Computed example of a mutant assay.
Amino acid sequence: MNKITKLLVLSSIASATLFANDNLVVDFEKKRLSQNPNVKASNIKVFYKKELEVKGWYGYILDFDAVIQDKNMKIKDTLFSDGKVVATDLFDIKTSKSLKSTVVPNITDKYYQKSKLIAGNEKAKDKIVIFSDPLCPFCMQYVPEVIDFVSKNSDNIALYYYAFPLTHIHPASTTLSKLIDIAKIKLGQDAVLKAYKVDWQKHFEVSTTDDKTILNAFNKELQTNIKIEDLNKKDVVNSLEKEIALGDDLLVAGTPTIYINGEIDPTKELYKSLIKK
């Protein structure tokens, strides 16, 4: 057997072993979920897999359909395995931090949509993607700062914005996110920055679900003339649903969440290093 043949055989064995390990993790999840009478799970599959810095260990994100309290849901769960055992979590013994935060998908090119560009040059090498809730207090300060930074370096960086309203915290953010998207047609990229500079709590509580109150405030502050029926147009509703789904695929759980050249930045400060002083 020549060297090339040996390499191919070893590669095939390794691939088969890894695939078998994947199946073991899926089987474990099936058995684990079946023990919970309140959850009916189906279509369990590996959504994402990442080799960890811990030798021999992989992090898995599993995707499945579930019925919980008569509600149909799409669920993602994280597990860890070395091919011999499966663990629901792993911790760094030095920092006591869970390794779950390291098992996250990276940005792909589909997130660099021209319609989501709010600052900079779409042909730039360095790309930033932000998922944000327009009523998140930190976001309201952070997003304008990033926009300002990119605008000052517009030839070298592209900044893409995705709405990710945290409806369970700020119900009004869903309507506000729709309005920002609609306003882009008239105001262009500047609609996002203008909306983030407004103190919306002068006009309504973040807990409100009164679309008319939110709409009147938005039209007044941004000098637009959006109608209440515009909020329920199919393309507007679908656009926001797609943005949220793209965030869900990346396991975005809070805002702001920022990615620098495809990788999540938990520090939220790395964008400043894109331009060397």
Rank of each mutant, 00 (worst) to 15 (best):
D230L: 04
D235W: 14
E241K: 15
L79Y: 12
V67P: 04
H168V: 06
T108I: 02
T257L: 02
K186S: 10
I185F: 07
S34E: 15
T257K: 00
W200D: 03
E229K: 14
Y112L: 10
T267F: 09
E241T: 12
I228L: 15
V237A: 10
L24D: 11
V25W: 02
E29K: 13
I13W: 03
L52D: 09
P256E: 02
D190R: 15
L90P: 15
E145W: 01
I169P: 09
P105V: 07
K242I: 08
K197F: 08
D148I: 00
D133P: 15
K242E: 12
S151Y: 04
D248K: 07
G254T: 10
T78Q: 13
I244K: 08
L251R: 10
D235Q: 13
S96N: 12
D133L: 03
G247Y: 03
D92A: 01
E221L: 00
D235M: 08
L135H: 10
Q69N: 13
E221S: 08
L99V: 06
K50S: 06
M140A: 09
D190Y: 08
I185D: 06
D89W: 01
I128Y: 00
D199Y: 14
L270M: 13
K197C: 02
N106S: 11
K152Y: 00
T224W: 04
A245Q: 11
K74R: 11
T102K: 15
Y111I: 00
D211E: 15
I182E: 01
A163Y: 09
T102Y: 13
C136W: 00
I68A: 06
E51D: 09
F218C: 03
D249F: 03
I226V: 07
V150P: 12
Q223A: 11
T213I: 06
Y259G: 00
D82K: 10
K40M: 12
P266H: 12
L215K: 00
W57T: 10
V150H: 00
L187R: 05
T78L: 12
I118F: 04
L18G: 05
F131T: 00
V67L: 13
T102A: 13
V25C: 03
N23W: 05
V252E: 01
A191L: 04
L250A: 07
K184N: 05
I61A: 09
K55M: 12
S154I: 05
D190V: 15
S42C: 01
V46A: 03
N2D: 10
A172Y: 03
K197N: 11
I244A: 02
P105E: 15
T5V: 11
N238I: 00
S239C: 03
Y60V: 06
L99E: 09
V237R: 01
P171V: 10
L117V: 04
D77H: 09
K30M: 01
D230H: 12
F19L: 02
L274N: 02
V39C: 09
A16C: 12
Y60G: 02
V143H: 06
L250V: 06
E221N: 14
E229G: 07
L18R: 08
N38G: 10
D109K: 11
P266Q: 11
V26S: 03
T255C: 02
A14C: 07
D248M: 08
G188Q: 05
V54A: 15
L246A: 07
K212F: 04
Y142M: 03
